[in-house]
Design a protein around this nucleic acid. Structure first.
Lengths: 204, 204
DNA sequence: TCCCTTGTCATACCGACGGTATGATCGCCA
DNA sequence: TGGCGATCATACCGTCGGTATGACAAGGGA
């Protein structure tokens, strides 16, 4: 499940922070709570971390590592078609963001606590990178201008974020999950078909 | 500029809250600061508002009213084509979210402070509604399934949100603004062309 | 005119929390 | 063995969100 490393106190603090922040939100969880849940006191926290946001950052990193493991696994290898690639990748993203800690830490509290730039820096290597990877294939195929790939990837990532959160608050998450996946499929497939047609119109 | 109503103390509190929250973020602004900036004390705040988040909510409402005024003005009327409609609407959204208070209150701190459901309820009548309006035209034209219009609108809204924030953190906001607008145009135009073609393929 | 009510706000205060300073404990190594 | 760095507990401070209470003015009825 995890690396069988000795599971230091720092890991315990991160683990409990991750759990408590996911349950109650960053603002509603005190440093003492996290320390007590880990069987320690505040002194240990402020020795391992600079401040509360630093602890939050560490928890975000841990959650993001799980997301990265889950997403990367089954997408980078199997890429028969950019549509398949990005839709499968988006599906894996929705799966990964079904976890409560990923939603709460990485999507809700993240931007407010870390600031938007740090949040983007956190998301860039994993999810945005995945989308940019697929978009890069479109650019290689001449369907897209290379210059807008980063921006376009960011926009599509934004759509995925809202999709994941829409599933989270739905009364029927299972039905919402299907709806969101269908809508993303429609959006991406439509976009792909559109740019393909436009490229054909340019060079018949 | 505004309604020339007597400008009550409540308005002053909301105005200063809006300003300070935009400058320093929700967490870094104390209730006493807001009260002092309005020439009052904390007692006035807790008489007018239930708690700090209620004050924040009121500030968000004020900012959102400005956004709504700005967005609705020049989009609902002129709708020659769904592409024009949604792209012009998105452009107005980017203009509206260039204001620092709109970005910070409505896009960064909003979800974390209000919770995601309340945040969506705040965004729904204005920006998401605008997109859903344009998407509805596509559904009427048979290019889209009615059932996925709300979900699809939410996804596109997510893309616009990230676009607005991408402009905000860019080293060169002017250039970033052009890039984001170009990317949204590519995304929406591609999507429209794609669904149009698919509809034609279904019924030739 | 007087009093009582209502709305509005200031003041004083409490508990909790983030953060710091300091001391205790343990392992390790010369 | 003695000192040293790493790790953590304890005690403490300032600030902040929130509450309780009183002051004060405006109005209205007798």
């Amino acid at each position: 499940m995890m690396s069988t490393a000795p599971l230091t106190n720092r890991d315990r603090l991160v683990f409990q922070a991750r759990r408590l922040f996911a349950e109650n939100g960053y603002a509603a969880v005190s440093v003492d709570e996290v320390a007590a849940a880990a069987g320690l006191t505040k002194g240990a926290v402020y020795y391992q971390f600079k401040d509360k946001t630093d602890l939050f950052r560490a928890a975000c990193d841990a959650v993001m590592m799980d997301v990265a493991r889950y997403v990367d696994l089954s997408t980078m290898a199997e890429s028969p078609h950019p549509l398949q690639e990005i839709v499968v990748g988006g599906g894996k993203m929705f799966d990964a963001y079904e976890a409560a800690d990923a939603r709460r830490l990485l999507l809700i509290d993240g931007p407010a606590v870390l600031g938007f730039e740090q949040w983007i820096a956190l998301q860039e290597p994993v999810c945005i990178g995945l989308i940019a990877h697929a978009m890069g294939h479109l650019a290689e195929a001449g369907l897209l201008d290379d210059a807008i790939v980063p921006t376009l990837s960011h926009l599509v990532f934004g759509a995925f974020v809202q999709g994941a959160l829409r599933i989270a608050i739905a009364a029927d998450p299972q039905a919402a999950s299907l709806e969101v996946r269908a809508a993303t499929l429609t959006l991406i497939r439509g976009f792909l078909a559109g740019v393909t047609q436009e490229a054909q119109d340019r060079q018949p």
